[in-house]
Simulated scan of single mutants.
Amino acid sequence: MKILVVGTGVIGCIYGWQLSEAGHEVTHFVRKGKKLEIDKDGIIIHCLDARKQNRPIIETLYRPNTVEQIGNNGYDLIIVPTKANQLNSILPILAKTEKYTNILFLQNLWITHIRQIESAFQDSRIIYGQAHIAGGGKSGNKITCVIFGTKNSPTMLGKKDGTVSESVIQVEKVMRQANLNPQICKNIFAWLISHYAEANGLVAGVMEARTAQNYISNKEYIKHSIRLIREGFKVCTLLGIHAWKIYPQALYYVPTWCLIPALLKMYRTEETQLMIQGHIKHSPDEMKEMFYDVFETGKNLGLSMKNYKQMQKYIDTFVL
């Protein structure tokens, strides 16, 4: 398959690298002035691959094909793994591509972002997804990342209306060829919105703690995250999304005393620590915007957002 990946961020490079390894023709769309640099130096990928039994650390130099203009080049699939706050600049560019090319938005998305996407494209072109299988950070031309190896860490895929279209089936096949654990979700809209609230509660707790290591050293930070996640789920409920019906988000309704040990066990693993710390270093602006997306939506819907108000000072003063 001929695939265009927008950008060379963490998720874009992980997926571009893995899809290339699986034999697909992958090109990355980069900002003006970046092509020469990437073509010359490549991108160093330092990856803990937890899909394999011995969990190897892979160090490789990824040399992707790059373009600074998209044009009509007959791509079968365009993958958009950028931060959601970059949609304003990306959507007008993507609007110029062939109308038959499917676009996979592989991002953390809130309801406002989905409305923005739907105002730009026909629904037939749009596939939504989330790279739950991977994460990490980037410094210069080096990416430090993890690819998780459990069934509970998939590449989520789906159409907003729940249909399993031929385009979704084709993308699922491509992701499976690259061993990226695809999972077709017939309720992808609800999954994405509730996941956004969940992920926001986690990263806000880490921002309060200042580091991933501090976060797992004090149960109070975990408690604060749980409260934020549950308050975010109340926002979801008012949006018509019931998190208690969605896995794994439903697990946050387990009693707190039982939930904390399970979360600590998960957060203390090497791969989760790597992902969280990398995300903090790479995307603090995105994390702050995620916090305020949920916070402002909740207030507009009439909720007091007590826990968000208590957390606000830590978000506003967070620095690396």
Rank of each mutant, 00 (worst) to 15 (best):
C258V: 14
H242Y: 14
V294T: 11
A212D: 10
K245N: 11
V235R: 03
I246G: 03
H224D: 04
V254W: 07
E286F: 09
K288V: 07
K219C: 14
I260D: 01
W257L: 11
R227N: 12
E270P: 04
C258W: 15
T237S: 14
L228A: 05
H224R: 12
Y252M: 07
A212T: 11
Q277A: 06
M290A: 04
L228N: 02
G232T: 08
K234A: 14
Y292C: 03
T211Y: 07
Q213Y: 13
H242G: 07
L303E: 00
L259P: 00
A212Q: 13
L263V: 02
Y267N: 01
L303P: 00
P255V: 01
T256I: 13
I222H: 01
P248K: 11
A243P: 09
E231P: 04
Y267W: 08
I226H: 06
L228M: 09
N214A: 13
P261D: 04
S304I: 07
L228P: 09
A243W: 04
A262Y: 09
T269V: 03
K219S: 15
M266V: 14
L239Q: 15
I260F: 01
H282M: 06
T269L: 03
A262G: 06
H279S: 10
I260A: 00
C258Y: 13
K299I: 12
D285I: 12
S225H: 04
L228R: 04
C236K: 05
R227C: 10
K288H: 06
M275A: 15
E286N: 05
F291Y: 09
T269G: 00
K288A: 07
I280P: 11
C236R: 05
S283D: 15
I280C: 13
D293V: 07
K234G: 06
F233C: 01
Y215A: 04
K265M: 08
T237F: 14
K234D: 15
K219G: 15
L301P: 08
Y215I: 10
S217M: 11
T269H: 02
Y253C: 03
N214Y: 10
Q277K: 05
L238A: 08
D293M: 11
L259Q: 01
I246F: 00
H242P: 06
H242K: 15
V294Q: 09
A250I: 11
C236P: 09
P261L: 10
E271G: 08
P248T: 10
H282A: 12
H224W: 05
L259F: 03
L274T: 15
L239S: 06
N300I: 08
Y253P: 07
D285V: 10
L239N: 12
M290C: 06
K265V: 03
Y247I: 08
Y221T: 05
L264V: 05
K281N: 13
Y292I: 03
H224F: 02
I226T: 05
G302D: 01
D293L: 06
I222V: 07
T297N: 09
L264F: 08
K265D: 01
K245T: 11
I222W: 01
H282N: 13
I229K: 02
L228W: 10
I241F: 03
L239F: 10
T256H: 05
T256K: 12
V254T: 15
E271C: 06
I222Y: 00
A262Q: 13
K281W: 10
G240Y: 02
S283F: 15
P248R: 11
K223E: 14
Q249Y: 02
P255S: 05
Y253S: 09
S225D: 01
V294G: 07
R227T: 10
L264P: 02
L238V: 07
P248D: 12
Y221I: 05
S304R: 05
